[in-house]
Design a binder for these strands. Structure first.
Lengths: 214, 214
DNA sequence: CTCCTGTGTTTTGTATTCAGAATTCATAGT
DNA sequence: ACTATGAATTCTGAATACAAAACACAGGAG
């Protein structure tokens, strides 16, 4: 197999995003570059490069002379991000081949029905949810749009761990996914896009109470 | 006045984007970091930081060991970017206060009618067009969305100079802007969004012939 | 006691250096 | 003549070094 030869900055970026998923970092706290670099076993240079990319994705903020910090979470920002992703995924569906959508619809339906039990680990549920959405937009021929969706979703990762230990109404989420899949199977793209948007809005509202008021 | 104290990487980024507007760089060519750093009078470190952000915005590409190069232009990518911006600006309008939109509509109309003469310099026209779109979405309360639009539009700058010395049918562009403004004044948001999207699609097609076939 | 100021420390922003990968060019072998 | 091999060169990726800005704290003036 070809060995992993990605630039260090990318590996660092992923490591940081992973830690963010696990809630290792408190939002709003400053980053000490030397300390973090030492902890990761790299020098400041590729670390800073990773931090700059993450800042570009909105995961971090930076101020002149004061370095980087994890962007504080807020209901406003969460709402904004969800609106954006909902819109982008809608666009992605619009830019997809209808025939392909009908083709994958059964699989989407199956996945939605097999939604992991509420007993499952939080990250299992998230993984499953991600896979569903990834499959949903996989037919989009606008590659830049797909990249953009990935990038914006990175900004949402900061909110993922806030769900930990929750028994959110998963049935509802599953039901909404089913509805999207069924509409796609029926070939009603416009309605499917609408249902998808509803799914995001509902998920957003379910989450909202867990975000500390800014 | 408070003097400009932005990080060097941002200034470099803007300088590079400016040069891109002027068509100083041939698309697809590799960047020599030492040469470019020397030319800009900075060291490689902040230059690389700027290059990394630009790569994140899709303006540049990078490959391990081979550094950065200006992403080649292609009709496919141009189409994709236009679709995305059109969608995003539509979202921005949806997320705007209808009252505010009605309020700025007259100004939008005035600007559209005062569209610079075809004699005007290319960059004057572009500036004017940018201002019109900026005002259009200025009422959007989703700040992240506005940032995202700016970022995606940066990727479109690589295509701007291809228009140079063209007498594209500006009247048509102006007429489309007028139509959007009029619909906003009438309070018909849905139709305005549609007209805006048409504007992007038309502008895209006008441009298409000037992009070399990949 | 409070606020200002100045000094020392920490941390970032930028420059420079070092190591290794990619490219080029020349040469030897088929 | 063409290909393959290898050394020399160029350039990137990463580490280190340096300069300056921000921060913290102590001491003194009001």
């Amino acid at each position: 197999m070809p060995i992993d030869r990605r630039p260090l900055r990318e590996q660092i970026r992923e490591e940081l995003l992973g830690r963010l998923d696990r809630g290792d970092f408190a939002a709003g706290t400053d980053i000490n570059e030397v300390a973090l670099a030492a902890e990761l076993g790299v020098s400041r240079t590729p670390l800073r490069e990773a931090l700059i990319t993450l800042a570009g994705e909105g995961v971090l903020e930076s101020t002149q002379g004061r370095g980087f910090r994890f962007a504080p979470v807020s209901r406003k920002e969460f709402t904004e991000l969800c609106e954006i992703v909902a819109g982008l995924e809608g666009l992605a569906l619009d830019a997809s081949d209808p025939a392909y959508l009908r083709e994958i619809a059964p699989e989407l339906l199956r996945m939605a029905r097999d939604f992991p039990d509420r007993i499952a680990e939080q990250h299992v549920i998230e993984r499953h949810d991600d896979e569903w959405h990834d499959l949903l937009v996989s037919g989009c021929r606008n590659e830049r749009l797909l990249d953009l969706i990935t990038s914006v979703k990175a900004g949402l990762r900061r909110y993922a761990h806030l769900l930990a230990g929750d028994d959110t109404p998963l049935e509802r989420e599953a039901a909404e996914h089913c509805r999207v899949a069924e509409l796609l199977m029926a070939g009603d793209l416009a309605e499917a896009v609408q249902a998808l948007r509803d799914n995001w809005v509902n998920g957003m509202e379910r989450m909202m109470s867990r975000i500390p008021a800014s």
